[in-house]
Write a protein that binds this DNA or RNA. Structure first.
Lengths: 339, 339
DNA sequence: AACCTTAACTAAACCGATTTAGTTAAATGT
DNA sequence: ACATTTAACTAAATCGGTTTAGTTAAGGTT
């Protein structure tokens, strides 16, 4: 069973490559290829299991039916879940997805964008490190279809889909405040990323609303790469310091789970002594000890919105302007704050 | 800043496309292009940020520097983690990865294989549904580079990387038996997949070693798609039936977490009343209530082995025969079985 | 009978690279 | 002084499709 090409079909059926190509692309009628000819071409192709070479097709069409997905880390459950829905939706629309992790490295992200472009992807989906102004500007200038998600460039006019990070953190912080907790620590990442900055703001504003003075010693901004180490110091300081807290807000799921791990190690009872809440969650957060109150992100909606916008851009349906979508998070109350 | 092509460089520098191509591919010396010419080509390319069109390159070379990854579900933490290491290693070697989820659907898997092939991937990595003999045979016949992982076709002579599923389940079951548990249920998936069959075997043999008769009523084989529903029935029957068990072996991480969720709902104390163990884990298994004893899979090793074998195949370094790797799992004892 | 349509096709250019098979002019050998 | 080698290139074919710009023959007009 040798591989068959367009020209083989053409030769065997005594027609031109043009005819074969047109027919197999469903343009037989509009190009007045007779029914018999169409019939035999289609039959032959089916019988010999002809599949067009996408590289050739892509090269000549200038379109590859591929979209590029650039995320910080495919192993992170949040991104892998979003990737899942993006891939499914993309496939449903005839696109395959090329993915790469940037590992939060701006240069790497830049290279990935370039690499995806030279692979002729038709569009890009990026959860950016937010340090690639240059590449983003380039994409904009070239009017290349792309959508940012999770993190966007607030100062730039691009398509994006994010969640309301400010509101999410505010909700969990206020939940703690409503339950009477007053000394609330925050363990978050070093700022730099917009969502992280927003989460800090949400925390601060929640405290302000309850007329609680901000205590700088209660806020720990951790280096991502070092989070295992640094969080230990943070927890110790918060819990065993001179002015111990009675609640902690964690700004990501992995900070929360690692935090809980350490609280357990230190034999701090949660929620009796310290209540905890998390922005974003792991699927097991409802069965950990104690189940962790979190705000959860609408993963499915994120993925669907991203693909919708991107495909519209690619297929040029909606030319007009850019679209920014901010989705709401949902507070999931569990037992990590007492009841 | 218009996009520059090979021919632009050639024209602007008054040299041939051939020269430019050779030089930029590092074949300048072996083709005796003078140093000055090489110099100016390289400079020009750098200055104008020339990046070759991979579709064109792929088409003419018959190689795309892309590998295809077909897995059941990118959202599953096991696969997303393996995908992470595969992607990283692939990138290190100059390859990009195209991924698609089969959602355990054999036809879809077949289509994905075809789709990847016509996209001219240089190699395939497949965690197969094990129902695609035809496609696998086809790949073998064509001597197309591919590696199976997680699930392979034991009767076929292919490259693969799997873990010792039999031994893993045996280890967790024996762990329960060593702690004096005698009435051990098994909640697993409907057989069909080799790893699942092996896990059943491991369970059975562990019981046999301890001279415990197999009780068919203790084994529940669940339909994956319906697992949320069916596991509830299984748990109820095991725990509340006429002959209640004192331990449960779960054959996947999601069965284990859902199982624990239900046991909590029924107020069954774990491990006092029922001990549980899991094949494979979630990252939060050490902080759930109670922490779940599991056998864990060497994710990094799996990914590395897969890429190693595949790249060797693609680059034709080791022609001789096929390579099957069976990796050991590791028993992680936590509190879900008492101590 | 000359002219115009139209149905049914096709030749050849093109996409942007790689690569084979030369060519040319200078240097070297005898 | 002529043949041979070599350094330094290049023209053109090729990869496998898509697409533009025709061509040809039959049928319809006037």
């Amino acid at each position: 069973m040798k591989k068959v090409y367009l020209k083989d079909i053409a030769k065997d059926l005594n027609v031109s490559k043009t005819a074969v190509s047109l027919v197999l692309n469903g343009k037989g009628n509009e190009n007045k290829i007779s029914q018999e000819t169409q019939q035999k071409i289609i039959e032959y192709a089916k019988k010999h299991n002809y599949i067009p070479n996408q590289l050739a097709r892509g090269l000549s069409r200038g379109k590859s039916e591929t979209i590029g997905l650039i995320i910080p880390n495919i192993s992170d459950t949040f991104y892998s879940k979003v990737a899942g829905v993006i891939e499914r939706k993309a496939k449903e629309n005839g696109y395959t997805v090329l993915f790469s992790s940037s590992y939060e490295n701006p240069e790497k992200e830049g290279e990935l964008i370039q690499s995806m472009l030279n692979r002729q992807v038709d569009g890009l989906i990026i959860a950016s490190t937010q340090q690639n102004q240059k590449e983003i500007d380039f994409l904009k200038k070239e009017k290349f279809p792309f959508v940012l998600f999770d993190r966007h460039y607030p100062s730039k006019n691009t398509d994006y889909v994010v969640v309301d990070n400010y509101d999410g953190t505010r909700k969990i912080t206020e939940h703690l405040l409503n339950l009477g907790r007053k000394k609330i620590g925050l363990i978050t990442l070093k700022p730099g990323l917009e969502p992280i900055a927003q989460r800090l703001l949400g925390y601060k504003d929640a405290l302000a609303t309850f007329n609680i003075d901000l205590d700088k010693d209660y806020i720990f901004e951790i280096e991502r790469e070092e989070y295992i180490h640094e969080i230990e110091k943070a927890i110790q300081s918060l819990v065993l310091g001179k002015n111990p807290i009675d609640a902690i807000v964690f700004s990501t799921h992995y900070l929360a789970s690692q935090g809980l791990r350490l609280l357990k190690k230190l034999n701090i009872s949660v929620p009796e002594k310290v209540a905890i809440v998390s922005f974003d969650e792991l699927s097991a957060f409802d069965i950990v000890d104690p189940p962790i109150t979190s705000v959860i992100q609408p993963i499915n909606k994120i993925g669907c919105s991203v693909i919708d916008i991107l495909l519209n851009k690619i297929e040029g349906i909606s030319e007009q302007g850019t679209k920014g979508i901010v989705l709401e998070t949902k507070l999931e109350i569990r037992q990590s704050c007492g009841q």
